[in-house]
Each structure stands twice: as structure tokens, then as C-alpha cells.
Computed example of a mutant assay.
Amino acid sequence: MKKRILLVEDEPTIQRLLHFILSKEYDVQATANGYEAFLWLESRQIPDLIIMDWVMPQMDGRSFLKCLKVSGLYSEIPVIVLSASENVIEELSGLPYSVNNFLSKPFDPIILKETIRSIFKTSTYGFVN
């Protein structure tokens, strides 16, 4: 069974690029913001990993991450933040919860895939392959 990745990205071009890069190895679902991602999660679709943007409409990365990490059901899902925002590292370091990794946009697809494999190799969350 393929591991499932939830993309939370408002830019359609980046959504398509990520889907293209990852869909051969993983079951990929994309949403445009944190609000849509929570609607998807509440439909009992639980991913093995979330890759999210930081700057998004409706519910930005900070709000989405906070809701995710304080929830009982979703707090253990590994998270990778992809963002072009210059302030993300500073903002992430000031939060009481953490993410598994941060990659700047534009990102190297090979490094992204290696990061994902590393998280799946070390994570105890989700399915065991």
C-alpha cells in the first residue's frame, strides 16, 4: 500500500509540480489551504505526511499547523514546510511545536524526495511497509 501525502499549497503550478514529482511513489492529495486540508482530514482521510506552504489564503500555515499540533488525532502526523517566505524559519523557531523539516522554495525535487524517505524511515507514525 502506498503511503499517503497531503499537499497543502495554494499555488496551482506548485501543486501540479509536487503531484508530478511524488505521485509515482505515493498517494498524493492536494488542498489549496489549511481550511480545505482540515475538511479533507475530517472526512477520515489520514495522511502519513503533510507537505504544506506557509503563506496561504483562508487559513495560513501558522494557523493550520497550530490546529494540527494541538489536536489529538493529527498531532503526530509528520510535517514538511515548503515556503518562499523569508520569515518562516524565525516564525517556526518561536512556536511551541515543531515540524519535521523545512525546505525553501524553489526546492530541489531530489532533496524533497530524500527528505520524505528519511521521515518515513524514522517515523513511527502511519503504516508500516
Rank of each mutant, 00 (worst) to 15 (best):
L82Y: 02
S71W: 08
Y74D: 11
V88T: 03
S93L: 04
G72P: 03
I80D: 02
K66T: 14
G61P: 03
N87E: 12
F64V: 08
M52Y: 09
Q58G: 00
P57N: 06
V79M: 10
R62E: 15
P78G: 10
E76R: 08
V81Q: 00
S83K: 01
A84M: 03
Q58H: 07
Q58S: 05
C67F: 13
L95A: 14
G94Q: 07
K69D: 13
S75F: 09
G61V: 10
S93F: 05
M59L: 14
V70Y: 15
R62M: 11
E76F: 04
E86I: 06
E76H: 09
A84K: 02
W54P: 02
R62F: 11
M59D: 07
M52L: 10
S63N: 12
Y74S: 10
I77D: 02
L73H: 11
D53I: 00
V70E: 15
S63K: 12
C67R: 15
S63G: 06
K69R: 15
S93G: 05
Y97D: 14
V55S: 07
I51H: 00
C67W: 14
G72W: 04
L95D: 12
Y97Q: 12
S85R: 01
F64S: 15
W54R: 03
V79C: 15
Q58Y: 07
P57M: 04
V88L: 01
Q58T: 10
E86C: 01
W54K: 03
V55M: 12
V88S: 01
K69I: 10
G61D: 09
Q58R: 08
S98L: 05
M56E: 05
W54E: 03
M59W: 10
K69N: 12
Y74I: 11
M59H: 10
V79T: 15
L68I: 13
K69C: 09
P78V: 07
V70M: 13
L68R: 02
S71F: 09
Y97M: 13
S93C: 05
E91Q: 13
E91N: 08
D60G: 14
E90L: 03
V88A: 00
N87A: 07
D53L: 00
P96R: 07
C67I: 06
